[in-house]
Structure formats: C-alpha cells, structure tokens
Computed example of a mutant assay.
Amino acid sequence: MIVVTGATGGLGGATVEHLLQRVPAGEIGVSVRDTAKAQHFVDRGVRVRQGSYEDPAALRDSFAGAEQVLLVSGNDPASDLVSLHRNAVEAAVAAGVRRIVYTSQQGAIAGNPYRPSEFHIDTEALLGDSGIAWTALRNGAYGPLDQLLGPWQRTGEIAQPEDGPVPYTDRDDIAEAIAVLLAGARSFDGPVTFAAPTAVTFDDFATIASRLAGRTIKRTVLDDEQWVADQIVSGVPEQAARFLLTWYQAARAGYFAEPSPLLADLLGREPRTVADRLAA
C-alpha cells in the first residue's frame, strides 16, 4: 500500500489523483487531518484514516500496512516543523514502512538564506538516521505565477527585488512525477531534484509575457527595503515580508539555479514551461 499524507492539500491531493490512474484504489491510503474533506477519495475506494503530525498514535494507525509513505512537508513557519516531521518519521518506522518519500525543497543545503531550507535540511537528516530507505524530493518552486510576478497584466510591469535563475515548475507535473515514482519500479535513495529543465529570471519572464501579451512588459528591480516597505503598505506583516525576501536573496545567490532532467524522464514528456503556464 502507498499512503499519502496531506491528501486534502494541493500537492498531496493531486498526487493521489495521479496515483488513481496508475494503481488500484485499494492499494492507496491517505492520512488526513479531517476525514470529512477526503470523502471524495472514500467514494472511489481509497482507504482514508485520520492522522496528523501532532498525533503520533493516529499516524501509526494511518500508516499501518503501508510499504511506502509520502510525507508532504508542513508549511506553517510558526510550528516546530522538525519535531512534527520527526513524529511522522518515527510513526512510519513503527508501522513497518519500507520507504519514506519526503517533499523537500530545491536548494536544501547549508548556507541557503531561504528560511524553510533549515527545516528541510534537518528533516532530511532525520530520514538519514531513520534506518529505513528514504527519498527526499527537492522540488523546484511551484507556487502560482501570478503570486510570484505580481499584477503584471494590469500594470505592464514585473516589479520585484533582484532575483536569479530558477527552474519554475508546475505543481501538477511534480504531483504526476511523484505518482510515477511511488507506483513504479524505480526508486532513488537520498535527495533528488524535481524541477523544470530550464531556469529563468524575471527578465526572461518579462520577455515571455511581452510576447504573449503583444505589448511591452517591463522588468523593474526594486530595492529590498523598498519592496519590504511596499509589502507592508499593502497589508503584509513586516515579519512575513522579510521572510519572503529571503527567497529572493537565495535566488540571486544561485541556490535554486540548477535545472534537472529527472522530472521530464519520469513524466516521459517535457514538463510545462513558464510560457505554457502564463498562456493558460
């Protein structure tokens, strides 16, 4: 059995949908905080059990009988995510799981200023000490492009801090590749990168957007402190703005620059490009 955590979230839910195209529903289980939100999986024959990273006993029950568990990383920066992930890893070990697949982050290496890197690094260390097989999927940035670029369609401008090349990746492509990995005969030990095969900058985005829009989209580089001030004016708390700023700092330092052919290899096709996503 393959058990997926966070299956009512975006990445986990999409992964289950792709798994259902590859393996019988009876071979899939999900561990979710609120089982009522997973009724659509129950209706299709998926095993649904309650489990959260705060409740080790429930996790052990939801992982029972699993050969593989997909641990979708927590995303609440206010939580002690390493401790929560430790609960999940220990529950998987106690349940006799043979392999843990963990959704890590591209560039999860020492020195990366992007703050979530720290808990991903620590979680990968937990996996390494777990005594069972594990894979850490260092996923490329897959957030919504409108959120990343700002209101460029209205303003004709991409006004963000200095950036660097990033292989922006489509979330559904990542979910499909995870399903291929979980359902297939191939496995990878340790960290692997799931990212688009081409890295682009905001300058590249402006060029692509200009071509698609049929008008000039300008790229404006904002000073870090000016960007933070603008975010605060727009209603973003300063602490959150400075947290987000560390992502730009990491990008410009090259921590997210390396593309990867593995995603295309697993999908058997080219992943969606940023042009595909902007045009959608």
Rank of each mutant, 00 (worst) to 15 (best):
H40D: 14
T15A: 10
R44W: 08
V42G: 12
A14E: 10
S31F: 02
D34H: 11
L11P: 00
V42Y: 09
L20Y: 11
I28F: 02
D43G: 09
Q21Y: 00
E27G: 12
R22L: 13
A38Q: 07
A14R: 13
L20R: 12
R22K: 14
D43Q: 13
A25E: 07
V42S: 15
V16E: 03
G45W: 02
E27H: 08
G29H: 00
V32I: 02
V30I: 09
I28N: 08
Q39I: 14
V30F: 01
K37Y: 07
V32G: 08
H40P: 12
P24V: 02
E17F: 03
L19S: 08
L11S: 00
G12V: 02
G26D: 02
F41R: 07
I28Y: 08
Q39C: 04
E27M: 12
K37M: 02
Q39G: 11
R33V: 08
L11W: 00
A25G: 03
L11M: 06
G9L: 05
A25P: 03
L19F: 05
K37D: 07
L11I: 11
T35W: 06
R33N: 12
G45K: 09
R44T: 11
G29D: 01
T15H: 00
R22H: 11
V23F: 04
V23A: 04
E17Q: 14
V42H: 09
A25C: 06
G12W: 00
E27V: 00
G10Q: 15
L11F: 05
V32L: 03
G9T: 06
H40K: 14
V42I: 14
V23R: 13
G29Q: 04
H18S: 10
L11T: 09
D34G: 10
R33G: 08
L20A: 13
H40R: 15
G29P: 03
A36C: 07
E17R: 15
Q21N: 15
G10L: 14
G13L: 05
F41W: 14
V23S: 09
Q39V: 15
H18N: 13
A36G: 15
V23I: 12
G12D: 01
V23N: 12
D34A: 12
S31C: 09
S31T: 09
A14T: 08
G29R: 04
Q39Y: 13
A14Q: 12
G12S: 01
G45F: 02
V30T: 10
R33D: 07
H18P: 10
G26F: 01
V16P: 09
V16W: 02
E17D: 15
G13M: 00
Q39F: 12
G13W: 00
L19C: 09
A38I: 02
R22G: 10
L19A: 04
T35H: 06
G9A: 04
R33C: 10
H18Y: 13
K37V: 03
I28H: 06
D43C: 11
G13H: 02
L20K: 11
D34N: 15
V30D: 06
T15C: 04
E27D: 13
T35C: 07
T15W: 00
V23T: 11
D34K: 09
